[in-house]
């Protein structure tokens, strides 16, 4: 059969991608795993990063991601609730045609609906736009808005011009990352909410529950696994991003762990960047570098793996349910 050849080529293209992924992961695991030890994970870098471990970078990354999650997940989940539960499930054109025929109080009601439809549409556009903004632009924004506008503003009004929040800090890096990851949690939550059968909502409303009671006690518990998956993917993405934190709080080396919101912090991804581009002795730092990359990968990649697996399972179940 002459068609085996082109189909085979497509299979080869697929295979190349899978092999590339395997090569990258294999290379990092093989070269990194030998240097991993309890000491490496629990001690700070020594001798100008030529020896010692990455504990402060692990600590900083976890602290950063925790702050980011606390900021991003509630806002993302609520935005998804708005888009899926409160926004009128009609198009602007449908409302407009009704508006043309309506009179008096009915006209006002339809007009209000139209406004809501437009707000929902603009919100959706904003979410996709936000997802497309390059991460380095988030870094610029974090510096210009959080550090120099909000931070310096806080210093002027609360601290009499003393430099407290008007400098790169973990809170500004976390908030910058929260905006970057917001679309991920929104999209994941929306998908989970859509999968909740309408019968459940109708049954709850028919029993006399209010809309909010229905959402908070019936819909959200059903969507919880999906929301958790979204949270896992958000954490995985946020832990790996470096460009947004370059100017908003990440530090090359710190003798102390960050404990306050306006402290700077060390970060695994930034540590990888510094070690691989600014090491005075590449051969000597190579094992440390590989081990650091492996720790970062385990943190981001394993979370991502778990998220993708759960999502795959749930999608299968939803498809069967429909």
């Amino acid at each position: 059969m002459k068609e085996r050849v082109p189909v085979g080529l497509l299979a080869v293209a697929t295979g190349i991608i899978v092999v590339m992924l395997a090569v990258i992961l294999g290379n990092i695991v093989l070269n990194g795993v030998g240097w991993i030890s309890w000491e490496f994970l629990t001690s700070p870098p020594r001798e100008g990063m030529m020896a010692g471990g990455v504990y402060p970078a692990i600590f900083g990354t976890v602290f950063l991601v925790l702050l980011m999650t606390v900021a991003a997940v509630p806002v993302g989940v609520i935005t998804a609730i708005y888009l899926n539960e409160y926004a009128p499930p009609v198009t602007a054109a449908q409302v407009r045609s009704k508006l043309a025929r309506a009179r008096g109080i009915e006209w006002l009601a339809e007009f209000w609906r139209l406004v809501q439809v437009y707000v929902a549409n603009v919100t959706r556009t904003a979410v996709t736009t936000l997802a497309g903004v390059p991460s380095i632009v988030f870094g610029l924004f974090g510096l210009g808005f959080f550090v120099q506008f909000i931070g310096a503003g806080i210093d002027r009004t609360l601290y009499g011009g003393e430099l407290v929040f008007g400098q790169p800090a973990i809170i500004w890096a976390a908030l910058t990352l929260a905006l970057l990851t917001l679309p991920i949690i929104i999209v994941a939550t929306e998908e989970a909410l859509r999968a909740v059968p309408h019968d459940l909502r109708d049954a709850s409303l028919a029993l006399g529950a209010t809309k909010w009671q229905t959402i908070s006690r019936v819909v959200l518990p059903q969507a919880l696994p999906g929301i958790l998956t979204g949270t896992i993917l958000t954490i995985s993405r946020g832990a790996g991003e470096v460009a947004p934190i370059l100017f908003t709080g990440a530090a090359y080396f710190l003798p102390h762990l960050p404990t306050r919101l306006n402290d700077q912090f060390m970060h695994l991804g930034y540590h990888v960047f510094i070690l691989s581009t600014q090491s005075p002795n590449v051969e000597k730092t190579r094992p440390i570098l590989y081990a650091t990359v492996l720790v970062l990968l385990v943190l981001t990649f394993s979370l991502n793996l778990v998220g993708v697996m759960i999502r795959m399972r749930m999608r299968k179940r939803w498809r069967r349910g429909r």
Binding site: I17, V18, M20, L21, I24, N27, I28, S135, S236, R237, A239, G240, E241, V242, A243, G269, Y270, V272, F273, S276, T277, R286, L289, V293, L296, L297, T300, F301, N304, L305, V308, M309, M312
Partner: peptide, 21 residues
């Protein structure tokens, strides 16, 4: 599908590291 989605889960700093080293 999930395997290729996993490629998207590798942080870009790790891809940069792999390219560089």
């Amino acid at each position: 599908k999930p395997v290729i989605e996993l490629l998207a889960g590798i942080p870009s700093v790790v891809l940069g590291f792999f390219a560089l080293i």
